Amino acid sequence: MSSDLLPSWNDGPAKSVILDFVARVTTGGEPDYVPPSERIATFDNDGTLWCEQPMQVQVFFLIDRVKQLAAKDASMSTRQPFRALLDHDIKALHAQGKQGLMELAFAAHAGMTEEEFDEIARTWFASARHPKFGRLFTQLIYQPQVELLAYLRANGFKTFIVSGGGIDLIRAFAEGAYGIPREQVIGSSARLHYELQGGRPVLMKAAELNSFDDREVKPANIGLHIGRRPILAFGNSDGDLAMLRYTKSGQGARLALLVHHDDAQREVAYDREFKLSPLAEALDRATDYGITVVSMKNDWKTVFPET
């Protein structure tokens, strides 16, 4: 295999494992051959496909959304946890936990149609920038992963996002950023209600959590929405461990990968201390579980795309 297949990956064990796996499952007549219909690859989003520090992009979007709402309802700025959002109180936000923040997000997004939310999200992505890197959030996707997604699709894989982030927010940018269409995004979701507006059927977002797509819920939602066990899965935290182990436990050739954020110079170095999405068990027991750890520092030539 040519080393140019994944040009933003350094030559080494991680890249070799990926290239070897894809070659084995796509070569007809070989023992590990997998038909195209079964070549399912699932990727976490936050921290796996784009930057999630110092908080997930979902939280930055929520902060700006609450600012808009507080401008219309001043009392919101005095109530917790909205006050913590507006004050950028990282400690208080971390205390909410990932599910708490998702429930807060859905409360702030309620009372609009799916189409209205999509327009708000697309408008926000067009101008919102990361506070540290000064780039659009959509420019903080990981170039090596974009290449990997394209490489897998070129070899007959169907690529899915399986994320703890809000499904509607991810759908607003995933196709343009990753080449993954809306219908191949699985994420945390609010309940939707069907109603008529001026005789037109619409789906309204409710202030109720429908599914928090993290940890053991990820494999359950894969079964519900995809109906096939993946043969490749990529994550970056303990929230992805159930998905990685579910993938590895199937019959035949399987590959589970884990991004380790160990590059403080080009991004952020962190793992078990990130309260919203820690990496501990998955890192400590990667060898036991047959998971390939990908070092951002050593395995990636570059992190973000060139602007």
Rank of each mutant, 00 (worst) to 15 (best):
D271I: 08
T159P: 11
L62H: 02
I18E: 00
L148V: 10
L93M: 09
S127Q: 04
F60H: 11
S188H: 08
F61R: 04
D240H: 06
Q184K: 13
Y194D: 13
A172T: 13
G12S: 12
K275C: 14
K91E: 10
L85C: 04
Y33N: 10
A95T: 05
A207E: 13
L283E: 11
F157C: 07
R254E: 06
Q53D: 12
W50V: 09
V22C: 01
Y142Q: 03
Q80A: 11
N236Y: 06
I186Q: 01
R229H: 08
A280H: 13
L244N: 01
D271A: 15
R79W: 05
F133I: 04
A220H: 08
K205T: 11
K98R: 10
A280G: 12
G166T: 03
R153Y: 03
F137P: 00
G156D: 03
I170A: 09
S16M: 13
G227N: 03
S249A: 15
A105L: 14
Y270I: 14
A207R: 07
S8I: 13
P7K: 09
M112D: 06
L209Q: 08
L196F: 05
T292K: 05
L276F: 03
D168P: 06
G97T: 14
L255H: 04
V185Q: 01
P13R: 15
Q265N: 14
S77L: 08
G187C: 04
